[in-house]
Design a protein around this nucleic acid. Sequence first.
DNA 1: GGAGGTGCTGGAACGGCGTTCCAGAGGATC
DNA 2: GATCCTCTGGAACGCCGTTCCAGCACCTCC
Lengths: 225, 225
Amino acid sequence: MATKARRPERRQEPLSRERIVGAAVELLDSVGEGGLTFRALAERLATGPGAIYWHVAGKTELLAAATDAVVATALAGDHTDATPNEAIRALALGLFDAIDDHPWVGTQLARTPAQPPMLQVFERIGRQVRALGVPEAAQFTAASALLNYILGVAGQNAANARTHRPGTNRSEFLDTVASEWEELDPAQYAFTRAVAGQLREHDDRAEFAAGIDLILTGITAHEWP
Amino acid sequence: MATKARRPERRQEPLSRERIVGAAVELLDSVGEGGLTFRALAERLATGPGAIYWHVAGKTELLAAATDAVVATALAGDHTDATPNEAIRALALGLFDAIDDHPWVGTQLARTPAQPPMLQVFERIGRQVRALGVPEAAQFTAASALLNYILGVAGQNAANARTHRPGTNRSEFLDTVASEWEELDPAQYAFTRAVAGQLREHDDRAEFAAGIDLILTGITAHEWP
DNA sequence: GGAGGTGCTGGAACGGCGTTCCAGAGGATC
DNA sequence: GATCCTCTGGAACGCCGTTCCAGCACCTCC
């Protein structure tokens, strides 16, 4: 053990699962979902594709690990002193912000069944649902509804991020979509046309939070069978 | 015009966009999301990949068209004589059933921003939300919440369908997942363990409908700002 | 009836992907 | 020094979406 090099520095810091996952996150953030390639990753790590497979089983696992890493930091705080409603709001908004920063996480969560990261979210939501006094038989339904709503928004945000060119900002994007809505057939899309104005001025994050509040109202007010 | 062949029958019925989309839907249904390949599609249509591109711009458009075709038939009925709540339930369950039959539709909807099929769903939901008497400023929020919940469930159903081998049926699958949940760390996953039993006995469709009802309760009971 | 144009076909080929394979470098152990 | 094991990274495989293009059947006009 004495001979163990203090500073290995062989030629650089050696490959490791963490370094690979870190580089994958950077790549996904900078180049987008389609940009994560074993070749591009290998180049960024100054190695070959084969070396990566020694540390990671395949692309699926790598994507899951990258998602894990982001969600884990988003779930860092624990809000133990808040009311159940506040805790759920904070949890949901933390996830929203993480997905906003890393849109590919939204895609990944929406297409992954209950894997570790989402199970943890489910658990946290569930505890607060229980704290709300929801009858035991309905706790699963209530927690699932919240989780599915969050996943739906996650997927849509990721889809929107994929659609609009990185150069344009959010309000320009909303403006474009709102204009499209306003030119739909009035007979067939009366409602959509009517709310196009709200779309143009709306705030994704606030809208998301309002949806959470809506479901929480439903959970509190619902007469459970 | 007189010389126009009554029965063309050149060598078979000619290629057409509809025939291609139909074959794509069959392929997706039978082989799964990853099974839709231009080569496989060409083989099924007894042609080459190049011929398909004459009728369809690319894979993205083909997938969108296939989704459109399925969603359109799911949205066929219009339930004009129902109450708003009933109409929304019927609409949502129609979509649920369509996704249950064609899981790949769930993936597609969850990763597509507001394209024609979902815009139509949004419009239908919105009209019923309006009929519920929701104040105008909140109609967008209410309709979005419902739509995002539906999309979340769609994505999860598709993910589940992708996970479990086609051979096993739903109750076996639920049983497996429930057993996994029951073996989680009690300290970290108290809630999840507690509801594992409910997961085992639950009915996806009824659970989905309960979530819709929950949000509808929220919409009705919420005190809009 | 021939010439030319057009709409459509389908097979070959291209570049890029995830993944596998493997010769071998480097350090630890005897 | 010999041996072993971990880890590397470049080459290669098979499949993908897509493009290219020579050629066919059919219509139209001379």
